[in-house]
């Protein structure tokens, strides 16, 4: 086998490997987002991680991965972790999302409704059933006691946390 042939095979193999890597790294539908503030791209999802680069406010970011309240993003060729709160998702995604959510289903353009104003058609399948008080009554036989739930939680090694409710973010915090 000539050297040229070996090189070609190597290139083909690495091409396949690269493709496989790309598939593994990029989720089936990578989400796009926009940076709302200038950020440091971090090497790990932690504020104490080292910076691997910087990105400017307004830059387009591909979300590659998410862990808790962090996202690993690709911005202009650089990769790193940023707080999810640094990303604007709705402005970058709303158009695409609305398009994908309506395709082949409701067929209506405006799927994002804030409050009233819609007819009953959307709820037809679930609210137009013949009332079944028997099915409602049967729910009680499925219910479990607080003791059951506590036993279950202990077996699953769930431990409670003392956490306060959070307040609504200020207007404009997520524009």
């Amino acid at each position: 086998m000539g050297l040229g042939m070996q090189k070609m095979r190597l290139r083909a193999v690495s091409g396949v490997a690269l493709l496989a890597l790309m598939i593994a790294v990029a989720p089936a539908s990578a989400e796009t987002a926009k940076l709302r503030i200038p950020v440091s791209l971090l090497s790990a999802p932690s504020t104490s991680a080292s910076a691997t680069g910087n990105a400017k406010a307004g830059a387009a970011a591909q979300i590659l991965d998410r862990r808790g309240f962090w996202a690993r993003v690709s911005v202009g060729g650089a990769n790193g972790w940023v707080k999810l709160s640094a990303l604007s998702l709705a402005s970058a995604n709303s158009g695409r999302e609305i398009a994908s959510l309506t395709s082949g289903r409701s067929g209506q353009g405006n799927v994002v409704s804030t409050s009233g104003g819609r007819g009953l058609d959307n709820g037809a399948d679930l609210t137009r059933g013949t009332p079944s008080p028997a099915a409602v009554a049967a729910l009680s036989s499925l219910a479990v006691s607080q003791d059951d739930a506590e036993r279950y939680a202990r077996a699953a090694h769930l431990t409670t946390r003392a956490l306060a409710y959070t307040a609504a973010p200020k207007e404009g915090a997520s524009q």
Partner: peptide, 14 residues
Amino acid sequence: GEDIAAPVLGAAPP
């Protein structure tokens, strides 16, 4: 709540 749930469970039982 039970009055409201009854038709929903009629349409889609447990």
